[in-house]
Amino acid sequence: MKIVAICGAGVGTSGILKVNAERVLDRLGIDAEVTASDVASIATSAAQAQVILTSPELVDKIGKTFADIVVIENYFDLEELERKLDKALG
C-alpha cells in the first residue's frame, strides 16, 4: 500500500499530512508507506500509489490518476483523516 501526500512545494503542508496520516494508519492497523511530494512531480511520485492525500485547492491540479484522491479540509483533524482514509482503504 502506497499513499502520497501532495502539496504545492513538496515541503511543509504535505509533511503535516504525511505525519498525521501515519498516525491514523497506525491507529487503524493498516500497513502503508506514506510519502510527501509536490504537484509538479506527481506523475512519478503517485504512479505506484493507491491513495493521494491533498487539499481541496489542489485537486484540480492533480490530473489523471488511477489512485483514489482523498481531500482533507483540516490537516490537524485526525478524526477527519481517519474517517476518510478508512473509507478509501476499507
Binding site: 502539496c7 504545492g8 512545494a9 515541503v11 511543509g12 503542508t13 503535516i16 504537484v39 491533498t54 487539499s55 481541496p56 485547492e57 489542489l58 491540479k61 483540516n74 490537516y75 490537524f76 483533524d77
Partner: peptide, 15 residues
C-alpha cells in the same frame, strides 16, 4: 497553487 496552505480553520502555514 492557491490557498491550500490554509491547512486548518484560521491557520495558514506559509512556506
Amino acid at each position: 497553487f492557491g490557498a491550500y496552505i490554509v491547512i486548518a480553520p484560521g491557520l495558514a502555514l506559509a512556506h
